[in-house]
Nucleic acid binder design. Structure first.
Ligand code: FES
Ligand code: FES
Lengths: 161, 161
DNA sequence: GGTAAATCGGACAATTTTTGTCCGGTTTTC
DNA sequence: GAAAACCGGACAAAAATTGTCCGATTTACC
């Protein structure tokens, strides 16, 4: 329940992968798919989504591929989710159309305002996580200490196994 | 993507509904389902899940029903999600079995450690939201001011429409 | 100029997850 | 003993996710 979609996983993996190669390096969807055992066509679509939002730059033709955008480090998880999965809503009624949230009828919805708060809060969290954060976490991860400040502040120590 | 399940919505609506009636009041699954236009059987199952975790107390037989547990206000969203939907994981590899997260092969997963941090962070957030919070938000909601401290601190003002 | 390798994009098929239904059982009141 | 409630498993329907197919366009290179 509430899992991230594969598309989002793929997008993150792709961005991290591309970040760890030269800035100028072109990455082809075939190569990326091969490295991580992802179906080529799916990898292709995901990268197309990213290109459409200018998170990466596409170069067509043979010898083409994708290249990380200049300040890709600043793109955040909320934008990313929106790019690959479309608008995110914890609960139906949050996407302009107010109809059909599921809980209609009678008294009218009990929990709508609270859901809205939770929705906003999660959005804010996603917005606060940048690709740079994700990258630095990976690098700092093995040292057992010195997590990026960002995560340090957010993470409850008792959560770490 | 990443929407809360209907079961979770129903559970929340049920708990809020029951909270807003007398403490001693019994609520039947049929009645609840009727009030909110939810399929009876589904409403029943959800309430059974809640009863199994002792969030509500069940009374059998005709004239039976469900009754809010004594300190139901303290139950939090994480427990609730676990009760109705089973364990929550933002990404497959977080549930003891390390196999089949989806992104296997080669270099090994790029983003696993970051995903783990995000997972823990979201869990902590869900744990921090109690039924009482949800209730008080609803009551305070119409006043336009004085949100519960809890939410006030968490919410980015620019998120409110 | 032709071929191959790449990005594009739509339609669609397969799979999985979510959601809802059915049915028979147990407990309890009247 | 009948009716109304909780209980729980199996299953069916619907929706969402995930993956596949096919054809089109762009471009490097021979
Ligand atoms: S109407 Fe959207 S949460 Fe109930
Ligand atoms: S292996 Fe779990 S996030 Fe990739």
């Amino acid at each position: 329940m509430m899992k991230f979609s594969k598309k989002l996983e793929y997008a993150l993996i792709a961005l991290v992968y591309m970040s760890q190669r030269g800035e100028e390096q072109l990455t082809t969807s075939r190569e990326f798919a091969g490295q991580f055992n992802i179906p080529q066509e799916v990898a292709g679509k995901v990268m197309q989504s990213l290109a459409r939002k200018n998170f990466i730059r596409s170069v067509q033709g043979v010898k083409g591929g994708y290249q990380l955008a200049t300040n890709a480090g600043e793109i955040n998880l909320a934008e990313l989710i929106n790019a690959v999965d479309g608008p995110f809503t914890v609960v139906g009624c949050m996407s302009q159309e107010e109809e059909s949230c599921g809980c209609d009828q009678h008294d009218y919805c009990n929990i709508r305002s609270s859901m809205s708060l939770i929705h906003n809060r999660i959005m804010a969290f996603f917005r606060s996580i940048t690709l740079k954060d994700i990258l630095s976490r990976r690098i700092a991860g093995l040292s057992g200490e010195s997590f990026p400040v960002h995560f340090d502040r957010l993470l409850n120590p008792t959560d770490i196994k």
